[in-house]
């Protein structure tokens, strides 16, 4: 199973990559929404997109909207991870097309649980 991790922080890309790899995933990374779309266009398969919310160039919300119109990836599960807090932030992300939202702080365990949930759904 292949995942695309999108985050403008190199440190977080690495942390999330490690967490997913430990759970058996093969992981690609992208540094913002635009980079993510470029990569998706070139990826033959992708089973999960995990994206940050706030990023330069193209943020997570815009990215999910684009993914939902993508010719091949319109139905890929998208997990949004964010330091946004609260129910209205969740609703905004879900309305944009995110499958699930995970708010900081979270543990590696919570992250992997959520990933399993969205990819088995």
């Amino acid at each position: 199973m292949i995942a695309l991790v999108v985050d403008d922080s190199m440190a977080l890309r690495l942390v999330h990559k490690r967490m997913l790899e430990a759970a058996g995933w093969e992981v690609r990374t992208a540094k913002d929404g635009e980079d993510a779309i470029t990569q998706l266009d070139a990826m033959p398969v992708c089973h999960l997109v995990m994206t940050d919310w706030h990023m330069p160039v193209m943020d997570g919300i815009e990215l999910v909207k684009r993914i939902r119109q993508h010719p091949r990836y319109a139905s890929v599960p998208v997990l949004m991870v964010t330091s946004e807090a609260g129910l209205s932030a969740i609703q905004e992300a879900i309305a944009a097309g995110a499958t699930e939202v995970l708010m900081k702080p979270y543990t590696a365990e919570a992250l992997v649980e959520r990933v399993e949930e969205v990819t088995h759904a």
Partner: peptide, 24 residues
Amino acid sequence: QLEVNRGLSTGKLVRFFEQNTLSY
């Protein structure tokens, strides 16, 4: 936040919880 992150889908969080300053 840490407690609701464990095992609870966002759908259930939105439907069954109300938000307070630091908790749900």
